[in-house]
Write a protein that binds this DNA or RNA. Sequence first.
DNA 1: GTTGCTTTGTCCTGTGACTGGAGAAAGCCA
DNA 2: TGGCTTTCTCCAGTCACAGGACAAAGCAAC
Lengths: 396, 396
Amino acid sequence: MRRMTARPANAHQARLLRLLRDGGPNSRAQLGDQVDLSRSKLAVEVDRLLETGLVVADGLAASRGGRRSHNIRLAPALRFLGVDIGATSVDVAVTNAELEVLGHINQPMDVREGPVAVFEQVLAMAAKLRASGLAEGFDGAGIGVPGPVRFPEGVPVAPPIMPGWDGFPVREALSQELGCPVMVDNDVNLMAMGEQHAGVARSVGDFLCVKIGTGIGCGIVVGGEVYRGTTGSAGDIGHIQAEPDGRPCACGNRGCLEAYFSGAALARDATEAATQGRSAELAARLDEAGRLSAVDVAAAAAAGDATALDLIREGGNRTGQVIAALVSFFNPGLVVIGGGVTGLGHTLLAAIRTQVYRQSLPLATGNLPIVLGELGPTAGVIGGARLISDHLFSPA
Amino acid sequence: MRRMTARPANAHQARLLRLLRDGGPNSRAQLGDQVDLSRSKLAVEVDRLLETGLVVADGLAASRGGRRSHNIRLAPALRFLGVDIGATSVDVAVTNAELEVLGHINQPMDVREGPVAVFEQVLAMAAKLRASGLAEGFDGAGIGVPGPVRFPEGVPVAPPIMPGWDGFPVREALSQELGCPVMVDNDVNLMAMGEQHAGVARSVGDFLCVKIGTGIGCGIVVGGEVYRGTTGSAGDIGHIQAEPDGRPCACGNRGCLEAYFSGAALARDATEAATQGRSAELAARLDEAGRLSAVDVAAAAAAGDATALDLIREGGNRTGQVIAALVSFFNPGLVVIGGGVTGLGHTLLAAIRTQVYRQSLPLATGNLPIVLGELGPTAGVIGGARLISDHLFSPA
DNA sequence: GTTGCTTTGTCCTGTGACTGGAGAAAGCCA
DNA sequence: TGGCTTTCTCCAGTCACAGGACAAAGCAAC
């Protein structure tokens, strides 16, 4: 079945589609208030959109003291796929055209198995969502991968934690398999777009979105647009030096932030503490292989374990020092903290805040909120849907 | 005498004015090639510009095998003023509409004397340039000040090194005195715009411009536009922590980059080395008050003094470490090093390069040139002219 | 029910922006 | 002098758009 064959024919139509996406159903009059076009011109464009089937008019709204208005809304059958590929798990979700999540699956997975195996799994998950009746097909898909991406082509470049992916034509391959347009981006950028669309970053033009998962990355939004850098590696803050001649890092350098704090580093440090008998609480959570995960540390911290709390605080301090530097440099209007280690929540946040507020200049921190992401694991998939809808809702 | 009363009436005219500014005189046909308008429409807009007097047609170009074309150029009487206020000196220059420097004066000065005294001096310098016959008046002025600026209003905010300036309405006051439109920005942003217009950063979309003068700052250009941050303090990297619990800094914190390397820090360290007898070369340059300046260090280094070279190298290393972090974060296409301490040149550059190439990821540094600014002290004033011309050459 | 008022949506015409072609002007070359 | 090229101008036709007139549809007061 072919879907969404039409695209907006001009900037007006694209604008209208985005308004309907972000603001939900609207009357012609309400649209006119937001769009600075005469009612006649607006009517023409809306009619054309109705003809293409991209939007539909269904039912009448309640009267506001005069003639009742028609509800104009995006085609209710439109479906976007959001895919967030992490280091150790995948999230796949379907949304409608308003980017509301209709169904969401999370499964463990290992990126290092390579793109072929991973996409087999992703396609199976997508098929499952479709089979459950949530979608008859997909009109577009936005994919996030945990590494730098050459954005225009949708190809990962030199990704440190997923070596088999270098140069794999993700966009092209998935577009073929799914039979719909596909856009690919860094997972951190997707999270930023998610929080921008439906989370804490609504209405903020310039902000940073720090994602602490298996690694650490940072989404950069400038004037409402994701900034990707010259080679697509902007925001790659995991390998900023946090300690001169410090711990060795997987990247070959020493003292990288990621070597001190990230899901992986936290798990390793906690395991060490547990096996050295520094924390009974942590030791009790060791698995058969004698290992701990970041989730265990979060649980131990929630139970009040001092060692776990110390690990989190120390990591938060390191991260906070780096963020403080970025805040001085970038002067954002908001800093969002998110990612897999959400359980660490407020202990982590407090440590980061302390460092930033202490080290950055008052002018940069004066009105700077530093908050946790609001969407959790759905930020990435919503960001994916947002990414592809931005693409499709732009002039052909 | 009233000047440049007209402004471009629409985006087409603005575009044409900028093309003429950046590309020099052009025929209608050449303009048409760059502007994607029909020849008829183009002719209409050019005619309107000719009517307003913003552009003039003077003479015929050589034939290229057919009818000779008219030379269309910006009005030759247009004059912009570029003012670059540093911590210890001012640069004032006049340019024509193509932003070519026609005259340039530099004078020592102390910002701490406050805006009134400083502007008295600036106005005198501008009058001198005018008196020398280079300009009959000014059509606009771009001013750079060494501190953060609330850009839309042109007002310095909480500038650390120039306390008397906080909230002083620079734009309004100067506009009144000069009788022409004025725009105000951070001096570092001006330098970035200068190098972008006429220096090493031509044709680079995303780059960083690190200015090492009395302090250290960084101009950020994203997609060809200067990025100023939420409160106008973006690029304020002098107070990024370079050393935990390090040297006390004038800002009240400890370990700031500026406490280790900047014109002021370098002078202080060199003076110390000289008085402690660690360098005869430096000691020979002490002034009557027993002090050295950054220029003395540069001279000593040029003479091969090991202590001076060490100081520069050490400072370069610190600066390079911070820049490495910023490169990882921002992934620029170019890094420009400039500012008062140009004499330190290649020793400094080598130290910075070493750190950046060693600490940043290959993807970010692979094609990353790190170069000295090309314009020296004229970068700022050209940037000022560029700033105001961008403003004036935009639709009214 | 009727009347007046409000809101929503449609229709129509006039205006200005813009394109593309025809051709004039001006130059080169043989 | 006649072809060929480039540059520039003029003109008519097309399209985008605004804004007013008007129709449709609803509410409320009488």
